[in-house]
Write a protein that binds this DNA or RNA. Structure first.
Length: 505
DNA sequence: AAAAAAC
């Protein structure tokens, strides 16, 4: 069951000569920015430039592969809603237990004692053999919110690191500060007994940290951070990429989206590839829309593996979705305080999502003025304030957190049972069209803040005009779900909703 | 007409 795991890593630590010293980097990385940006554009149009391995060809081959190869679905018929396409003839066996994965005793202890895990979740059972076993192919993996994606790549990073080599061997890039910190904490917890060192690459307060030029090079074996800081560390040669074995993009669809972090991500990837073409790349997210899916498949190596879920099956049944029709903006606040807060007091923590920083501030002030204890977070706050607000929420000192989409993705707080969409998420792309498009991916991610790991949860969408109605029904159609209405002033409706969601007796 | 992220 677990034969293949021993060869590659073990051999390289035991018998191969020590790795060569990092080659001298003559040019500052920042100097190349312009060339790189130009090359990047070309590769996206898939016309020329063999800087990576001819992208246009890859697409064709992948398409053929997908159609011809019967899905090598693993041994569990229940997994049929996850579509797995594996590359080549490598057989993978789904891991029924963590023991099946040939993990070190220290890592197993971390999983059982620190994380209190018993056995791999579905996505873990399928993806971990692909991540851990040679030939360590790249992987694009989609899985439901709260299904344990983080464990997949954190375990991947921890088990691929050679504990005896003090150099960065695993790098994980995340879209927000909060997610980078959270992932670092998970890694430290899971890896507690392994002795593997880690560093969180996010901006620090300039007052209590050395300027980058004076800092020592990073020796940590795993680095997790946000694009800007990682780019900076690489360009100042504080983060060496030559020993990296594994590169992870969390929320990969956002990290590679045109209006996301695509340029940064591609630049980092190219820099790593330049010194180190064998580095394994993992792309994880709950969402990959067709556009970005198409693009990311050209971003990774040709012989990658992939796991996808149908969009209809992404909306968790565990989280019940409702809509409340409010006559105007002001009545949204009434609905929140007079009904949702009133009834939702003992159902756990709540996140209220808003579209803009301004409305986060406004709503925060309104609710505080009315005597409610709420906090709010958005990207314009300084780092200290952001960290403090998240910590208070995690410690349970605050029950209600107002947030922009800074926390829409990945934020894992198991006590969150209620999500309120004060505004529905909108795509900003169609600049000159009059019709608004919902941001389906952000909607799904927001909903996913409740019902972590199969827990109960409810979402209330506050809608107040024709535009909202259309957005809401588009969302329903897209995911093939029905969002039932809770009448604005009906206590009974709210009660029934919370009962149906399993949050109220 | 947005949010995120480096100075």
């Amino acid at each position: 069951m677990s034969e293949p795991a021993a060869t590659d890593d073990a051999a390289s630590t035991a018998s191969s000569p020590p790795p060569p010293p990092p080659p001298a980097q003559h040019k500052s990385w920042a100097d190349e920015a312009d060339d790189d940006a130009a090359a990047t554009d070309e590769s996206t149009t898939a016309t020329k430039e063999p800087s990576t391995s001819s992208p246009s060809l890859n697409v064709d081959e992948l398409t053929i592969d997908e159609n011809k190869t019967p899905l090598k679905l693993l041994d569990d018929p229940e997994d049929s809603n996850i579509q797995a396409v594996t590359s080549g003839d490598t057989p993978y066996t789904s891991a029924a237990t963590f023991e099946d994965l040939n993990l070190s005793a220290e890592l197993l202890k971390g999983l059982y004692v620190e994380m209190k895990f018993q056995k791999p979740s579905k996505i873990q059972a399928i993806s971990l053999p692909m991540i851990l076993n040679p030939p360590h192919r790249d992987l694009i993996a989609q899985a439901h919110n709260g299904s344990g994606k983080t464990t997949c790549f954190v375990l991947g990073m921890l088990s691929r690191v050679d504990p005896s080599m003090q150099a960065p061997q695993a790098l994980c890039i995340c879209p927000t500060r909060e997610l980078a910190i959270q992932n670092t904490e998970v890694l430290r917890k899971m890896g507690k007994y392994t002795g593997i060192s880690s560093e969180c690459a996010v901006p620090t307060d300039s007052r209590d940290s050395l300027p980058i030029q004076k800092r020592a090079p990073i020796m940590a074996q795993v680095v997790i951070g946000t694009p800007g800081t990682i780019k900076k560390w690489i360009s100042y040669k504080k983060l060496a990429v030559t020993r990296l074995k594994i590169l992870v993009f969390d929320e990969a669809d956002q990290m590679l989206a045109e209006d996301g972090f695509k340029d940064d991500s591609l630049r980092i990837m190219k820099e790593i590839e330049k010194f180190n073409s064998s580095c394994q790349v993992l792309l994880f997210s709950a969402t990959f829309n067709e556009t970005v899916k198409n693009f990311v498949e050209r971003t990774v190596k040709r012989d990658h593996n992939k796991l996808f879920v149908k969009k209809e099956e992404l909306s968790l049944d565990a989280v019940k979705q409702y809509k409340v029709r409010c006559p105007d903006e002001l009545s949204k606040i009434e609905v929140i305080k007079d009904y949702i807060f009133e009834l939702g007091e003992n159902v756990g923590q709540t996140i209220i999502f808003v579209r803009t920083r301004q409305s986060a501030k406004m709503l925060h002030k309104s609710l505080v003025d009315m005597g409610y204890e709420v906090t709010s977070i958005q990207g314009a706050l300084d780092h200290e304030a952001r960290d403090k607000i998240v910590k208070e929420f995690r410690d349970g000192l605050t029950q209600v957190l107002i947030s922009t989409d800074v926390l829409a993705r990945g934020f894992d707080q198991q006590q969150v049972n209620l999500v309120i969409n004060y505004d529905l998420p909108i795509k900003h792309t169609a600049e000159y069209t009059r019709e608004f498009e919902p941001d389906y991916e952000v909607y799904l991610h927001r909903v996913g803040r409740a019902g972590r790991f199969g827990r109960k949860g409810a979402v209330f969408n506050l809608i107040c005009d024709e535009r909202d109605e259309r957005l809401m029904s588009k969302i329903e159609n897209h995911f093939g779900t029905r969002v039932s209405e809770v009448r604005e002033k009906s206590v009974e409706d709210y009660k029934a909703a919370l009962k149906e969601a399993g949050l109220l007796q």
